[in-house]
């Protein structure tokens, strides 16, 4: 009898709480961005494919499915950090297999060497190259994401990736180096907190 009462009581409780939870999950449903979109918005959108996915969105989808977050060289450490924050995982160093982080670059066509083959136009993921068959092509610098994809197809190798030079408008002060940074860069660290002082103080 007692056993039965206990079971009944538990079942009743389970039902009540289940009902409350079910109600809450419907009533207080959080309408958030799907995680893929959030990840996608953190990626640099160069569409360079260095992550071995055909664009940023596919990589975002892959990350949502558990792919590693350190395969995006154009985004670099900042993107990895942001992704780690978003997903609540430990940031990892950039996977060198997929390339190294470098300064922002823009493609420039050496125009007298261009033979007008349109191969780079087809390669450009953001339609930033202008030109027609047998006509000289040129890169719209403001649209170029610096993804590198047009360099390989060029049969005459006339595309250079040029670092974007700062202008008076875009220039800003560098981060001052601190004693701890300069020392930590040189030495192994005895104390764990010495590591990456600059990165996470």
């Amino acid at each position: 009898m007692t056993l039965l009462t206990a079971i009944l009581a538990l079942v009743a409780l389970a039902l009540v709480f289940g009902a409350i939870l079910g109600f809450a999950s419907i009533r207080f449903k959080v309408e958030g961005n799907p995680i893929v979109d959030q990840i996608d918005s953190l990626l640099p959108q160069t569409q360079c494919g260095q992550c071995s996915y055909p664009g940023c969105k596919p990589y975002a989808e892959a990350i949502a499915d558990g792919e590693k977050i350190n395969k995006c060289p154009p985004g670099g450490e900042n993107t990895i950090q942001a992704l780690a924050d978003l997903l609540g995982v430990e940031p990892e160093p950039l996977d060198a297999e997929h390339g190294e982080e470098s300064v922002t670059k823009v493609a420039v066509i050496r125009e007298d060497e261009c033979i007008g083959c349109t191969k780079c136009i087809q390669a450009c993921p953001v339609d930033a190259i202008l030109g027609a068959a047998k006509q000289m092509h040129t890169v719209i610098a403001s649209e170029c994401t610096g993804c590198d994809l047009c360099v390989e197809p060029c049969p005459v190798d006339c595309i250079d990736m040029v670092p974007v030079a700062p202008t008076v408008q875009t220039w800003s002060w560098e981060q001052p180096s601190t004693t701890a940074d300069s020392i930590a860069a040189k030495n192994d660290n005895l104390i764990i907190t010495d590591k990456g002082r600059g990165a996470a103080a």
Partner: peptide, 20 residues
Amino acid sequence: GGIRQEEQAHIKSEHAKMRF
């Protein structure tokens, strides 16, 4: 400067995404 650059980069990446 870093925040402004990040904002610029974000705008640019949104733009690139749109174009892509």
